[in-house]
């Protein structure tokens, strides 16, 4: 299968001098569900944010669909972002807008600024937005304000918003870290559905190994900004676990 993303020699040093990523190399094939694990502060969020260029990488190449997007600037970054969806730990919806309007915001990249500011989303886009809400199972909440939904529901709206972009790649930064275990599985199941039914490649940061084993097709582990493990979730033995999370770490299970 062909590669959708190749990261080569990626380095990120923040303006305050923190070197969050050190010579990171990995590839992602089309249709994969890649999970990134690692301790807090190991650079997982930084990695995802470099991929869609919310952060500027310091050095290295990020080859998305055959094009190196690391050196792109301004308008070009924006065009690339249209093809890459992202969901966040805290959902990052617009609280005062309705669910439908939040989902429609996924199409902003295709609209001119003026058109979108006057709220002129096409009927076609509205139909599509409702379809995606259907897909994540909350079409009935379309006209409710986003801040009146539960966390799990908000994350599903966020998934629908990302799908609205027609992305080829979906980045998920700890998508279930602020949800309870049951809701956590619902959201993960929808991500899996998006991955399998729509064929969208997913890169997700996760904390719980039990989730990783259940959903990931492949895993990379970061430690202090370096890739220390790359392989299938089944191959993460206790020994690897200790190496990634440090001596004496114990695995926590979430059912």
């Amino acid at each position: 299968m062909e590669n959708i993303l190749e990261v080569r020699g990626l380095d990120k040093t923040y303006p305050n001098g923190v070197r969050a990523l050190k010579d990171v190399n990995f590839t992602v094939r089309k249709g994969e569900f890649l999970v990134v694990i690692g301790l807090s502060g190991s650079g997982k969020s930084t990695l995802l944010r470099c991929i869609n260029r919310l952060h500027d990488p310091t050095a290295g190449e990020i080859i998305f669909e055959g094009q190196d997007i690391a050196p792109l600037q301004g308008e070009h970054i924006r065009r690339i972002r249209c093809n890459i969806g992202m969901i966040f730990q805290h959902f990052n919806l617009i609280p005062r807008h309705t669910v439908l309007s939040n989902v429609l915001m996924g199409s902003l990249g295709r609209l001119t600024s003026l058109r979108s500011i006057f709220g002129l989303f096409s009927e076609e886009d509205k139909k599509k937005a409702l379809q995606y809400l259907e897909l994540v199972g909350i079409a009935d909440k379309a006209f409710i304000r986003a801040d009146q939904l539960s966390g799990g529901q908000q994350q599903r709206v966020a998934i629908a918003r990302a799908l609205m972009q027609n992305p080829r790649l979906l980045l998920a930064d700890e998508p279930v870290a602020s949800l309870d275990p049951a809701t956590c599985h619902t959201v993960m199941d929808y991500l899996k559905k998006v991955n399998e039914e729509l064929g969208i490649t997913i890169i997700a940061n996760l904390h719980f190994l039990s989730l990783v084993r259940q959903y990931a097709t492949r895993v990379i582990a970061l430690k202090a900004g370096e890739v220390v493990y790359e392989g299938t979730p089944q191959d993460i033995t206790d020994e690897w676990f200790q190496r990634i999370y440090g001596q004496g770490a114990k695995e926590v299970h979430i059912s």
Partner: peptide, 16 residues
């Protein structure tokens, strides 16, 4: 910053 990142990630312009 959350909503700003959320909207930026969709490929929106600065004005949007």
């Amino acid at each position: 910053e959350g909503p700003i990142e959320g909207i930026q990630a969709t490929g929106a312009t600065k004005l949007q």
